[in-house]
Computed example of a mutant assay.
Amino acid sequence: MRMQDGLNAAILEALPMPVLIVDRQERVIVANAASRQIFGEAVQGRTFATVLRQPALMSALEAALRRGDQGRVRCLIQGAGREMVAMVSCAPIGSGAMLSFEDVTALEEAEAMRRDFVANVSHELRTPLTALMGFIETLRGAARDDPAARERFLSIMDREANRMNRLVADLLSLSRVEAEERKRPAQRVDVVSLVQSALVTLRPQAEAAGVNLLLEGGDAAIVIPADPDQLTQVFTNLIENAVKYGGSGGEVTARISRIPHEAGLRGPAVKIMVIDKGDGIDPLHLPRLTERFYRVDTHRSREQGGTGLGLAIVKHIVNRHRGRMRVESQKGQGSSFIVTLPET
């Protein structure tokens, strides 16, 4: 019998899920290793109310101890340096009760992200759709016989329809990138030629905006394992953003350099910087730039045709390539978007 008790204690101790056993006097008599990490090494021997004082959980514990009922309660736990949302199962065991804690923090965060994503997409689509519906109604009524008004409204409708098309394209692109994020690229490509190609593609747009595109450090090929289409998307996005939002400085530079040993990547790397001399970004916004639909200047971004997803796509592509991305900027001093990718 003692051997069986020892085996049960060893099993309980090895469980990855936090477990507490409470006696009829509501005192903690057993706390496994996972629960001690949350509630502290001295949790055993304490009255349960001093460990977690949550009314719903106390009611479930009393029901298990007094009536033999089983219950499941959601509770918020502060411990181990973080806040945890847990589903606590409370069940009678012998003359006491056992409480097991299932960490559902990640599930709830994912659900919150899903709700926010749906709300954001709905909002982004509602604005152009409302505009289109309003103009259609006007063209059927007051502007039916007004050629000038009809032409102006059709131009706006075309712009709003293109905006919705860009949004759908970016959503599909983001979905594909996220699906492939854990799949390492196997093809070896010249990163310099990809940057040069992006510059050539965007040069007409830059010239129309009065922005000069420059390349520094692209003298020799630098071959790395990469998905060429995705990296082209990264460089195109960053350079296009620099032209649109940092073009007031009249110059955008793509700078390529090699790093013999990048500590964060544990080996040789290539660094690509896209630098503008525009108005810069308030440091307050920098940590959130790669969030979906986050915009520093919402009105300006929409006027420029932005969907708010470009930098989120860039972040996921860089992650897939085991790289790093950071932004350096100050108001009035331009911005630098820096991508560092491993060479091996």
Rank of each mutant, 00 (worst) to 15 (best):
V121F: 06
E124P: 02
L125W: 09
G134W: 06
F135K: 03
T138S: 03
T138R: 10
T138H: 06
L139H: 03
R140T: 14
G141S: 13
A143L: 00
R144W: 08
A149T: 04
A149D: 05
A149V: 02
R150H: 06
R150I: 01
E151M: 05
R152S: 13
F153C: 03
L154Y: 07
R159E: 15
E160H: 08
E160N: 05
A161S: 13
N162H: 14
L171I: 06
S173K: 12
R176K: 02
R176I: 05
E178Y: 13
A179H: 11
E180S: 12
R182Y: 01
R182V: 07
Q187L: 10
V192Q: 07
S193L: 02
S193T: 13
V195L: 08
S197Y: 05
S197H: 12
T201F: 13
P204S: 02
E207R: 13
A208D: 09
N212Q: 14
N212Y: 04
L213V: 07
E216L: 12
E216G: 11
E216R: 15
G217Q: 05
D219W: 00
D219C: 00
A220T: 12
D227M: 09
P228S: 09
P228A: 08
L231D: 07
E240H: 12
N241H: 08
K244I: 07
G246S: 11
V252E: 13
T253K: 11
R255T: 08
R255Q: 11
G264Y: 01
R266A: 15
G267P: 15
A269C: 11
